[in-house]
Design a protein around this nucleic acid. Sequence first.
DNA 1: TGCCAGGCCTTCC
DNA 2: GGAAGGCATGGC
Length: 276
Amino acid sequence: MLKIKNNFDLKSTINCGQIFRYEINDNEFIVLIKDRVLLLKIVDDEIIVESNKEDNLKEIVTDYFDLDRDYDIIIDDILKRDEKLESVLAFSKGLRMIHQDPFETLIAYIISQNNRVPSIANSLNLIAKNYGEKIIFKEKTYYLFPTLEKLKDITEEDFRECKVGFRDKYLYGIINSIKNGDLDLEKIYKMNGEDALNYLMSFKGIGNKVASCILLFAYQKFDVYPIDTWVKKFMKEDYNIEGEKNIRKFTLDKYKEYSGLAIQYMFNYKRNGSNE
DNA sequence: TGCCAGGCCTTCC
DNA sequence: GGAAGGCATGGC
């Protein structure tokens, strides 16, 4: 068991569209990460973390929720560049960028194209159930997301059975590219945002949006930013800017190296702010 | 029923 | 090089 300070917004962080495989019940959260199940409970000014695997728990939780980074400095910086974002930033205060596993993020965001969040989660859970390691934790069953090794013989039809639809061929191709070494996920850590974006986009089924999400959510490249329907909506309604090209130019000019974060705050504000 | 979803690829000008 | 159409699946 681990206790950490409850000094960020755990619920929004989990629930703001970065990750898909989680459960929320009141102040209890289940998050499925690479090699274990995390159970997080908010108790007053602490967050209590339990897991089926307790070794290195502190390091893993710190890394996953990006706890060593000072987000107040970043938010102040964004605010200085754009005062109009004050209410957006206030709404997302305490939101942290989750540091996800690149392989699962890659698969997840390929599935996300032209899809809805519940469907994406359903497909990922089916893949985990069919190919991932089974974990029993507190008398409940969970499945970890499979490693590449466990997916090495998967076919397009197998993917289709996980309800991924037309994305089956993309996923199959990507798995093969990793297997034969064309796609090296480790190499991306050392690349700058733009090079990494072009590298990922050279593979079939990965466009700008999907590549940006992978780089932002798995590699913490905050200068890369996914422009999706929600961000387009925000830009049109609040800034009167239309067209992806124009949004891209405006965003990078304005928010520079924190464009990805600014975009994530806008997304959260537009998608979750108007629904609740 | 018909439309659309945190897009991308292909085809066609 | 830019616009349109198709794509599996599920929810409304």
